[in-house]
C-alpha cells in the first residue's frame, strides 16, 4: 500500500510541480497516473523512490514513511521500470534481471531459481536467453526483461514509468495483456504512469487524472468515463468516452445483463467471436459490416447466440443511465 499525504513538490517558489496530492494505492492494485505532459505524473512517481525530493507532505509505503528509510535500501525494495527499459548493454540478460538480488546479496542457487521462474512468467527460455545480451533481443522482449528485472527481488511495490510507451501498438497490446496476466499471479501494488487513455482504461484498477500537479479525479475507469467530475475530465476522455468505456466490458457482461439474440440459421454469411471479447472490439466488428450475423461462442467453442448493434446500444444505455440513477438516489 502506498499513501500520499498532502504531497507537494516545488522546484522553486513559483514553480510547483505537484500540489497537495492526497491519495492511496491499495495493496495489489494498479493505479494509473494519467494526464497531459507536464502535469506532474512522472515527478509524482519518482518521489516514491526518492529520485525526486518531497517538498512538503509524506509518502508512506506499507506503514513506513519513505523518508525514514535509507534511500538505497528503499529503492531496492521497490521495482522500477522505465520507458526505454534501461537494460545495461554490458550485461547479459541474466545479469540484468538479477541485479537487485545481486545487490541484496542473494546466493547463487536462489538467484538461479528465481531467474528461471521469472523467465517462465514471460515465456522466454532461461537457457537460451540468459546468456544473450540486450541488443540481441527484440524491443518487445527487452521490455519484458525490463519488467521482470523489476520483479526480481519480489518487491511489494512497483513503479512503472510509461513502460510500454516505446513499443508499436500491436506488441504493446500483447505485452499489456501479458502483464495483466502476470499481475494476477504476483499481485503487486503498482503505480503506473501513462499518457495513453486506452492503456490507462485497460490497465488501471483506478485512474488518477492530473493537471498542473493537481488531482482532477481519482476513480475507477468506468466511473471516470461515465461520471466525469469536471469539464477537464470530460474533455480529456473525449467525446468518444462512451465507446472507450466499452473496452471495460465483455460480451459475457452483456449476456448476463440483457441476454444475447437468437441465432438465425438461414444466414450463411457469419463470423464468430468469443464471449470474453471486449465490447469495443465487438462493436467495431459490427460496424465494419464484416458479416451479416455475428455469432458468440463460449469457451468450449459452442455457439450460444448472436450479437447486434442494438444490443450493444441497449447495454450501454443500461450501464451509463442505470448507474447514474442509482448514484443520484444514493
Amino acid at each position: 500500500m502506498i499513501t500520499f499525504n498532502q504531497v507537494t513538490k516545488k522546484y522553486s517558489s513559483e514553480k510547483t510541480a505537484v500540489k497537495d496530492v492526497d491519495f492511496t494505492v491499495d495493496e495489489g492494485k494498479i493505479v494509473v497516473l494519467l494526464g497531459p505532459s507536464g502535469c506532474g505524473k512522472t515527478t509524482l512517481l519518482r518521489m516514491v523512490n526518492r529520485l525526486e525530493s518531497i517538498t512538503e507532505g509524506s509518502i508512506v509505503i506499507d506503514n513506513e514513511n519513505s523518508m525514514d528509510l535509507d534511500a538505497i535500501e528503499l529503492r531496492r525494495k521497490i521495482g522500477y521500470v522505465i520507458q526505454s527499459n534501461g537494460l545495461f548493454p554490458n550485461m547479459t540478460i541474466e545479469e540484468n534481471v538479477m541485479i537487485v538480488t545481486d545487490l541484496l546479496g542473494w546466493n547463487k542457487k536462489k538467484k538461479k531459481e528465481r531467474f528461471n521462474y521469472l523467465m517462465k512468467l514471460i515465456g522466454l527460455d532461461p537457457k537460451i536467453y540468459g546468456k544473450r545480451y540486450p541488443h540481441e533481443l527484440s524491443g518487445g522482449q527487452q521490455q519484458r526483461i525490463g519488467v521482470v528485472r523489476a520483479l526480481a527481488a519480489d518487491p511489494p511495490v512497483m513503479l512503472m514509468d510509461e513502460p510500454f510507451g516505446a513499443l508499436d501498438p500491436i506488441i504493446r497490446e500483447k505485452i499489456q495483456d501479458e502483464f495483466l496476466q502476470i499481475q494476477r499471479e504476483v499481485k503487486k501494488t503498482i503505480l503506473f504512469v501513462s499518457h495513453d487513455i486506452d492503456e490507462a482504461i485497460k490497465m488501471a484498477d483506478k485512474i488518477m487524472l492530473l493537471r498542473d500537479g493537481e488531482i482532477m479525479q481519482y476513480d475507477t475507469p468506468s466511473k471516470m468515463l461515465s461520471h466525469p467530475e469536471n469539464e477537464f475530465v470530460n474533455q480529456f476522455f473525449g467525446k468518444d468516452r462512451a465507446i472507450k468505456s466499452l473496452s471495460l466490458h465483455t460480451v459475457r457482461n452483456l449476456q448476463e445483463v440483457i441476454g444475447l439474440a437468437e441465432m438465425d440459421e438461414s444466414i450463411y454469411d457469419t463470423k464468430t467471436i468469443n464471449v470474453n471479447q471486449d465490447l469495443r472490439n465487438t462493436l467495431s466488428m459490427l460496424l465494419n459490416q464484416e458479416a451479416d450475423q455475428v455469432i458468440v461462442t463460449n469457451d468450449q467453442d459452442e455457439k450460444i447466440g448472436s450479437i447486434t448493434i442494438d444490443l450493444v446500444q441497449k447495454y450501454l444505455h443500461y450501464e451509463i443511465k442505470g448507474k447514474m440513477s442509482v448514484s443520484q438516489e444514493g
Partner: peptide, 25 residues
C-alpha cells in the same frame, strides 16, 4: 541518462553504478 536513471532507481550506490554500469559502457 536512462541507463543511469535505472541504475540509481534500482538502488545502486555511486561506486556500484560506476563500476557495474558507467565505466564498462
Amino acid at each position: 541518462p536512462e541507463m543511469r536513471d535505472a541504475a540509481i532507481g534500482m538502488g545502486m550506490k555511486t561506486h556500484q553504478r560506476l563500476l557495474r554500469v558507467e565505466i564498462p559502457n
